[in-house]
Write a protein that binds this DNA or RNA. Structure first.
Lengths: 249, 249
DNA sequence: CGTCGGCTTGATTGTGCTCAACCCGGGTGG
DNA sequence: CCACCCGGGTTGAGCACAATCAAGCCGACG
């Protein structure tokens, strides 16, 4: 993996790791974690840094510890589509493949817990709990990729924006253990351009739809990157994937 | 899994199975295959049959032996997006989840090799080769889902159609071991409606774009479901994902 | 102070959707 | 046997939504 600017971090002990219970190591027993501890290294990328380029031969793979990274693919004429949003505990890189098929870019300052690909592959082969966890995570990612295909193929610009905001809101609420039902406030870790790439829109359309939702009081913009949602249900209604308010949870 | 019409097939011995070397059982040793043989059953669905509905609690999972099935998701107002095209050797159903999140429909007559979900899950836990293969297959599916997201989010109608045709052509060529480079002829196992659902378009747009490609001699329609491609390179050029003709292979 | 990147807003264009008519082939029933 | 229907497919006319082109705002930073 290559980055224009980076620093080597102090490794944190796995037992004290903030993503210990959600990352690829989640199912590992304490003695297995010791093995991981021995071969891991931390690395931090600045916002905007390229973590890996499509077509690169990657020697390292690992987990997002903190920050947000994006996975995207670009057409030769420059059109770009984001195909994954990587959050803390998500896994980066594909065991068993030589090249990454997608660009990986740090959207915010991002710290990774990395392993040498060869070493990690060897460890997988002898550690069923690692493989099991990786399978579960991959299946989950596949489900959300498919959900995203529905959005890209069939939703209107307004529905796309509302869906994205709802996801970010839920995610923030999950982290802060608050119920998303009233008066949520969250930050958008994405530029308008990143949102556009995520949603298959242009930045102008993203901006216009956000302005519209603002005028209709469905959202309140504290500033361009901080949003408050007075009534989560009415935001969900705009997302289109449920005739009623959907499951209350 | 439920189907409006179906028949119970004679089981084929795994060792004689046409997908033995590509399906979830591909990495299994002969003795492991024997275990699978003992708990599998075949079932055939007619074209149009629903194999599973989104939200269903599924008790069976398994592999496509022959035919084509589709995976799709529907918005409450009826808009529908296909999110997966299941071909022989592809796996249907998700171990470790109670409900299927997507509709599974047979696009052509389709034969499945099914297992009781519980039994299969138990077998996975004790058979690393099964789990490894399932992980590899899931990672491949995730990659192609992401490739598809690029198409849905950023390609024009014409590029979408050309991409789909190129995929079908390649797939047919792979089966018949022919090089796709000149004079390929293949069948479209999808209705215009299914293509539209796959591509995030309407049937009218699909029909129009196919007609245009026909007028421009990039494709030749023998009938609505059989297509000949005189020059594969020029079809690839229309697909947009490569400035030049792409890799020749 | 000027510049630059991220963002917003406006005017116009164009691609793909909607609505509608029609074609074609196969199956069914009088 | 023919009339009819029905599903899948094609084609046309008009429209709407999002893209494009363009100008300008705002805050950060040199």
């Amino acid at each position: 993996m290559t980055g224009s600017t980076f620093k080597i971090d102090q490794n944190v002990r796995c037992s004290a790791c903030p993503i210990r219970h959600r990352a690829v190591c989640a199912y590992c027993e304490p003695d297995e974690v010791v093995q991981l501890d021995a071969i891991k290294s931390y690395r931090t990328f600045a916002a905007g840094d390229t973590i890996a380029m499509a077509g690169d031969e990657t020697s390292k793979i690992g987990s997002i510890v903190s920050g947000v990274a994006t996975l995207s693919r670009t057409l030769p004429d420059g059109r770009r589509q984001m195909v994954g949003l990587l959050l803390p505990s998500d896994f980066v890189g594909r065991p068993g493949r030589r090249e990454t098929p997608f660009d990986v870019v740090a959207a915010t300052e991002t710290t990774l817990c990395l392993f040498q690909k060869r070493q990690f592959e060897a460890l997988i082969a002898s550690t069923p709990s690692l493989e099991r966890r990786l399978l579960d995570m991959t299946l989950d990612e596949l489900d959300s990729a498919r959900e995203w295909m529905l959005l890209l193929g069939r939703k209107t610009a307004r529905e796309k924006i509302a869906s994205l905001l709802a996801i970010m809101a839920r995610r923030d609420a999950a982290l802060s253990k608050a119920t998303p039902m009233d008066g949520i406030r969250f930050s958008l870790p994405l530029t308008r351009e990143a949102m556009a790439d995520y949603l298959g829109l242009t930045i102008e359309t993203v901006s216009r739809q956000i302005s519209k939702l603002k005028k209709e009081r469905i959202i309140v913009l504290e500033d361009a990157r901080h949003i408050r949602v007075p009534d989560f249900i009415s935001l969900l209604n705009e997302a289109g994937d449920d005739s009623d308010g959907g499951f209350i949870a």
